[in-house]
Write a protein that binds this DNA or RNA. Sequence first.
DNA 1: ATGTCTTTGTGAACGCGTGCACAAAGATAG
DNA 2: CTATCTTTGTGCACGCGTTCACAAAGACAT
Lengths: 286, 286
Amino acid sequence: MATGRNHRPATSRSRGIPDATVARLPLYLRALTALSERSVPTVSSEELASAAGVNSAKLRKDFSYLGSYGTRGVGYDVEYLVYQISRELGLTQDWPVVIVGIGNLGAALANYGGFASRGFRVAALIDADPAMTGKPVAGIAVQHSDELERVIEENGVSIGVIATPAASAQPVADRLVAAGVTSILNFAPTVLSVPEGVDVRKVDLSIELQILAFHEQRKSGELPDDGRAVPGTDIGEDAGGGVTGSPVAPPAASVTKRTASAAPAATDRRGDEPGNDGDLPAVMPA
Amino acid sequence: MATGRNHRPATSRSRGIPDATVARLPLYLRALTALSERSVPTVSSEELASAAGVNSAKLRKDFSYLGSYGTRGVGYDVEYLVYQISRELGLTQDWPVVIVGIGNLGAALANYGGFASRGFRVAALIDADPAMTGKPVAGIAVQHSDELERVIEENGVSIGVIATPAASAQPVADRLVAAGVTSILNFAPTVLSVPEGVDVRKVDLSIELQILAFHEQRKSGELPDDGRAVPGTDIGEDAGGGVTGSPVAPPAASVTKRTASAAPAATDRRGDEPGNDGDLPAVMPA
DNA sequence: ATGTCTTTGTGAACGCGTGCACAAAGATAG
DNA sequence: CTATCTTTGTGCACGCGTTCACAAAGACAT
């Protein structure tokens, strides 16, 4: 999953719709759209819930935040609900979007059908590589970074997508914000710092995989040998002090351990230059 | 963000680590790795928290689930913590991964640096398009779908990534599961149904954008004109029934409304064939 | 009109996650 | 050894989100 929003008091809901509910509305909308295409007139909360992969009670409560759109004994009117959710999500208006960083991922996003189909319009593709300039991607000519501010102003763009390498993400975000963008979807593996009032949502592929790995490890046998410290049982047996005490003698760790690496080879990353941790495969550093 | 995990009692944590904490561990790991590369020996919870973009109290509580790895008055040993988190996440072992659907997105994933750098190894790239077979992507030759089961068994793959169009996602998932995969990262905009014991995490680009649009709408002026149904005010004015009652006359809605679309143009998607809702730009329907 | 049946909408309880605030633990200086 | 200072680890309280369970509401049949 894209990993949540940037920290905010969760009191984001201006007039009452809980964040958790907002996050599910697109899910319902997709299921409803499918039903609409099959000309299904009404659905019960049970049916729709199962189609969206959630609990029916949760779905009903979610809808209750939007208003009373159902009919007892019958269910919900599909078309009407599609409209109401679309409106609530702001999908009835046009949202021009800029995508910055047209590498593999940026191109994938530009081609993504789900964008255009829901009120989102790709206003411009931006890349810092001069070699990319003018090259058509998904039917749109890539523009150079220099054009960023102009494009944003001319099109009234308020949503920006960052698909650059990690190192470029923050500078790009700064420029986006300065030019008037107030919502950012960030695919670069970095924590962006933005001024108050700017929303940042993050999608981190690496994190998702790591979470899967965690659960996977839990399934097939427990942790690798090197036990964890159950206070009082067998501890690392190292220089172990008291019961709850320091595991590896922190003070001596400073410079000595850095070279000799006390811990097993979990840190050394094979052949990666330091710094490009989870850099995206974008063509060039915008 | 990838949007949460597939519903599960949140009691996933086998022996105690809360899901919310697990989701943050990769974040800490990334920040710690950066510190490690700069040869920083120790960090305080305050420093690390700000680097990871979280609250220091939350970070300390998170670490407390792993054990007492800090030294009071000093902080945490960077190298040691990197190792402990890596181990807890299962990153000290090798995770062979298959990517199914080598379109724009699949290629982007294959090239993603963050994969290889953390114990994940791309065991195979699979695509249903015969024209893709043998074509090298990110240095790996694409294999035909027919090879899927063989590749999984031979490499002991337990994690699969689905980057196919929506229509192919469920069939692919079924085959993955049947072949032994127990964790799936799904990029296709569909709700996958999998047997008990199989983890599914979902990354949905369209949903992320829609959530941003919601917040964006809240910032710049409120909802579009067409008011919400304050029971008794102006409703769609269609065949309007009673006060709290059916908003658009559900019964008559069946076929009539489908063609004439009572609700404003929120449903009709410009030029999209019905059915490919949020299909991914993958080259071919695996 | 009355009764039955279906499905919504929601009050209330519960559990997880977050953040505060502080005591305990160790470092460090004298 | 004692005192002071820093930083961890955590008990506690609060709020959000989920779920249960049921009354209210309407459809539908008689």
